[in-house]
Design a protein around this nucleic acid. Structure first.
Length: 401
DNA sequence: CTGAGGATAAACACGA
DNA sequence: GTCGTGTTTATCCTCA
């Protein structure tokens, strides 16, 4: 799936000048110590990009090099961290993303080599609270990708479009009863995080294999970067499959952290936080088709288990329409039956999923507990009336022409 | 050629 | 009424 990487670099690629680029670099350096910034690979990246032009967009050497350096900078602890990307305490993830975004941003005065989904993802992940209002997302993107400062305002529309359409992103109401007002917070649906990561790692590199089994001599710069990236995330394809299986067998509702609660970071090393399908048909997540192209050959093992998951109707429950976005699933119809729930409602890997593995009463109990906890965290009263909430959440039928 | 993913544009609704 | 935000639809482009 080229577009993620390509992102039509040629379309509006030529615009912001060096001055803006520098501005972008400044913004980027804001995330780094000054001395580091001075000696930063960013500079070289910038220089390189300035001199090499837009064709560099599809050349992710910058990412490779900078990621490598970033990991090096991160030191042993960073590398040993089970999940640096999502290690909220350590914030390694933030630095990785920051660096990645920064390098991407300053390495181009043209469009960043990331899809909007990834940009949004990075923005949100970089925020302390792991949730941002669109405005801040705009700001983050502008800060790290100066290209957009001079780009037509349509990109904001695209951002909103992505937020709305992509299942990866969930809206979190800032206050109770504020269902449709301005300024909702957006967070990354933990269920899709692995997929976003996959999108990142698979970006531009069709060969999953190269990632899983890093060759002595890198087949390509980015595959190495991906490898390192994934090392950092402790997330490998095999892990994903294993995680899926584990989830089926062991996951308990209580394990599901509040997706939008910064205090309950998603540990990717935890099976239940990794709901990823490697199976193209069951993959209703990020860039399913690209995954299909990239990895379907390598993992059909998880398809059966995932299909049972999907059959059970485990979705975000938001009933987001997939449209032409990257989240197609066979249970789209299920989503339609299950219209979008208010954010912070229990989302779920849920019980339904495991209906075939557990007795129903136990299941309901767990569901209630989990939902109650989440609602409590969210400050929402927990009168777990899912059906009611579902109905309520259903936006008043918009009378569209 | 086809299908999928992604980008973009536009229209519309809603709330502040 | 305006603006920002969120949703939805349509269209185009690129890539495998």
């Amino acid at each position: 799936m080229g577009p993620i990487i390509g992102m039509s670099p040629d379309k509006k690629a030529e615009s912001p000048g060096v001055v803006e680029d520098r501005a972008g670099l400044r913004g980027v350096c804001g995330t780094l110590p000054e001395d580091e910034c001075a000696a930063s690979p960013l500079a070289t990246s910038l220089d390189r990009s300035s001199s090499s032009g837009d064709e560099e967009l599809t050349n992710l050497n910058w990412l490779h090099e900078n990621l490598l350096q970033n990991f090096t900078l991160g030191g042993p602890e960073a590398q040993s961290s089970p999940s640096p990307l999502f290690d909220i305490e350590g914030n390694h993830g933030a630095s990785v993303i920051s660096s990645t975004a920064a390098h991407a941003g300053d390495s181009v005065k043209s469009k960043p080599p990331f899809s909007f989904s990834l940009l949004i993802y990075m923005a949100i992940e970089q925020s302390p609270s792991k949730s941002l209002p669109v405005k801040d997302i705009y700001g983050w993107i502008l800060e790290h990708f100066p290209y957009f400062s001079s780009a037509p305002t349509g990109w904001k529309n695209s951002v909103r479009h992505n937020l709305s359409l992509n299942k990866c992103f969930r809206k979190v109401e800032r206050g109770l009863g504020k269902v449709n007002g301005k300024g909702s917070l957006w967070c990354v649906d933990p269920e899709y995080r692995p997929n976003l990561i996959q999108a990142l790692k698979k970006q531009h590199f069709p060969s999953t294999h190269s990632f899983c089994t890093p060759p002595a001599s890198p087949p390509s710069a980015f595959s190495t970067a991906r490898h390192l990236f994934l090392q950092g995330c402790s997330l490998k394809e095999s892990d994903i499959d294993a995680a899926t299986a584990m989830m089926l067998l062991n996951s308990a509702p209580g394990h599901h952290s509040d997706p939008c609660d910064p205090d309950s970071p998603i540990d990717l090393s935890r099976p239940d936080s990794v709901l990823v399908s490697s199976d193209p048909k069951q993959d209703h997540n990020y860039s399913s088709s690209s995954f299909q192209r990239c990895s379907s050959r390598s993992s059909s093992s998880s398809s059966s288990s995932l299909s049972s998951l999907d059959e059970a109707g485990c979705d975000s429950g938001q009933g987001r329409r997939t449209g032409s976005e990257g989240f197609h699933s066979d249970e789209d119809s299920e989503e339609e039956r299950n219209p979008r729930l208010p954010s912070l409602t229990v989302k779920c890997p849920l019980p339904v999923k495991r209906a075939r593995h557990e007795s129903k009463p136990e299941l309901d109990e767990e569901l209630k507990e989990a939902a109650g906890s989440l609602l409590h965290l969210a400050g929402i009263r927990s009168g777990l009336d899912l059906s009611k909430r579902t109905a309520k959440s259903k936006k008043p039928e918009k009378q569209r022409k």
